[in-house]
Design a protein around this nucleic acid. Structure first.
Lengths: 255, 255
DNA sequence: AACCATCCGTCCGATATCGGACAAAGTGCG
DNA sequence: CGCACTTTGTCCGATATCGGACGGATGGTT
């Protein structure tokens, strides 16, 4: 559990810290494995730990009493969780869990809070990150209100692709249907449509991105704005590695 | 333009400040009229001023290139705008404008930023407010994904009612249809359904709340959670005055 | 009083999505 | 190797919502 070196961390928030801020946090960072379905935070409960992800994908889900829920945001190595710690709010009414297994660092939330109270730069970086998540949520609300299932699915595949190494994403139709809050059968047929346009290929439990640019065109402009917001506020792109498919190109020309 | 007294402000954020923080801000607060459709903030533009509302309702709308948009949050005297200033993000991709005319205070955003950098308490109050807005957006995304138009409309009427003095809300079907991102005709028939259940009454350009509790039951649990979050983080309820209809009752029994 | 713009009610057929059912295909385990 | 389980593909009718059209009602203006 020796402190990590800033040069070797892949998490984009940690990597963007001033070296002073990094040194402030690093003694408290503890490398952890993040298996699929691992709960990073539970609804309306204090989170003892905050997580900076190095690989894998986390999912933020809001749900109501009857169990019906919908995903309101995702994050990979460009992000952290839970944002309630940054906002000094203690908890939030969301379930946050790993959707694709990975690893990362955890830090006691009280230590993070303490560091936040002492560093303006750290605060700025992380509150800006909070805004990128909020914008993601806002455009999810917009997509849910105005777009058809196929377009919402395309958007979602793009967001996962940005946070995946390579072009293969491991997901079942069932899981997708829960994230998008639609029927499983609707996911099946929507995937067929995307496949028919040669934008993706599918296998049991897998979605493979074939034509990223085509997916972006298909998804329309609910994809893109949150990503531009991330590059404006934090860095040039979300995607942390070069996939085979020139991810997130064109986002650097953000206004 | 004499500085307001904290005892007389109706804005709940300003009223909740420590007297020290209030004195820090008050020399910079300027009373302003906020007519209908007044733009508090434009997409991706720096906002010279931030606004603390005393009466009326503001609306936060996300939209895409083709002009299609949807409301992602509203605020009245319990809130302020834009939250990007609090998060030190400069701008955000939203249109924020007055939906029901009112008045409030404006402050130069640089002054607010400066005060935020100096006061932990002020920062905490306002970042917590940001979380309440985020939760509102999240549950809007959930409602958009899972609920029918009638329920979404009921939720929206409730949120406006919380921010209105009295039980009468001035809104056209056309306007409602834009906020909910549905057709105008769908609003007409959905209002008829609510009227048929004696939850509301309508007149040309008006919606009158008749049975608030009934509306809450009808809207389901996408209404309530954001409101509980506000009372947990900021104060006991959103509604700033006693309407004739015991607004937001039962929310004080928050978990 | 006449006019005009806005707002509201209602009808139509078309399409998107749902909810339920069931079979086929793939995968892992004993 | 065969059985149980998960995942995917496909069918059905039912319902929600859309998009367009149009007429009537309302309210302000001259």
């Amino acid at each position: 559990m020796g402190s990590p070196l800033q040069e070797t961390v892949r998490n984009r928030l940690l990597a963007s810290l001033s070296s002073q801020d990094f040194q402030r946090l690093s003694p408290h960072l503890e490398a952890v494995d993040l298996p699929r379905a691992f709960a990073l935070s539970s609804p309306n409960q204090l989170s003892d730990y905050s997580y900076f992800i190095e690989s894998g994908i986390g999912s933020i889900v809001a749900s109501v009493a009857n169990g019906q829920g919908a995903e309101i945001g995702i994050f990979g190595r460009e992000g952290m969780s839970p944002t309630a710690v940054i906002l000094n709010a203690g908890s939030a009414p969301y379930s946050i869990f790993m959707q694709v297994a990975g690893n990362g660092f955890r830090i006691e939330s009280v230590q993070l809070s303490h560091a936040l109270s002492e560093s303006y730069l750290l605060r700025t970086l992380l509150t800006r990150y909070v805004q990128t998540v909020s914008v993601q949520t806002a455009f999810t609300a917009l997509a849910n209100a105005t777009q058809h299932i196929e377009e919402r699915l395309a958007r979602w595949v793009l967001m996962c692709h940005d946070r995946t190494d390579g072009d293969t994403i491991g997901l079942t139709h069932d899981f997708l249907s829960i994230m998008l809050a639609v029927r499983r059968q609707s996911v099946t047929t929507a995937l067929h449509v995307l496949e028919g346009k040669h934008l993706i290929a599918t296998e049991r439990g897998l979605v493979v991105v074939r034509d990223r640019k085509g997916l972006e065109d298909f998804a329309g402009s609910t994809y893109g704005e949150p990503e531009r917001e991330y590059s404006r506020l934090i860095g040039t792109r979300i995607s942390g590695s070069e996939g085979g498919n020139s991810k997130a190109q064109g986002l650097n020309s953000a206004k």
